[in-house]
Amino acid sequence: MTVVGASDGVHAADWREAVRAAASVLVGVGAAGPGYPDACVRVVESSGPYIVMAKGLALVHARPEEGGLAVGVGVTRLAAPVDFGHPDNDPVDLLLTFCTPDADSHVAALSTLARQLLAGLADRLRAAPDQDALAAVLRGAVTGDRGRA
């Protein structure tokens, strides 16, 4: 069972605030522990802005031992985009995030998410009118339930 959360219209002054806000969605729905958002920031600090995996889209995550309690997936839409310092994909307006309790539990949900992204999920998320719709679109995408998207 994948836990899903969303936040919309988030104000972030820079990429660190954006990453923390995105990961905090997972804390809020109980899928990640309180240390997870800062761990996600450290991933970018140590490995670079590679989590910006497509134009305007970041995949925020850290290792399971940083506070993954369940398989959780979240989406955060910023009020105004921020730069991550990525050579091609800045600025970022949409952040997906996930957490997992171990190295394998997330693979099925994330593979489904990848297929949905290849099929235009990011555009469907950007077209969602509000936070509830964001959550519904994401939930439909990762569970296979088409929902009200």
């Binding site: 991933v43 995949l59 997330h106 994330l110 593979s111 297929r115 290849l118």
Partner: peptide, 18 residues
């Protein structure tokens, strides 16, 4: 490949398989 090896690279794997 990616930095952590769990998320971003999994996304890339799916695209590469396709």
């Amino acid at each position: 490949v990616c930095g952590v090896g769990m998320g971003t690279s999994l996304m890339l794997k799916m695209t590469a398989e396709d």
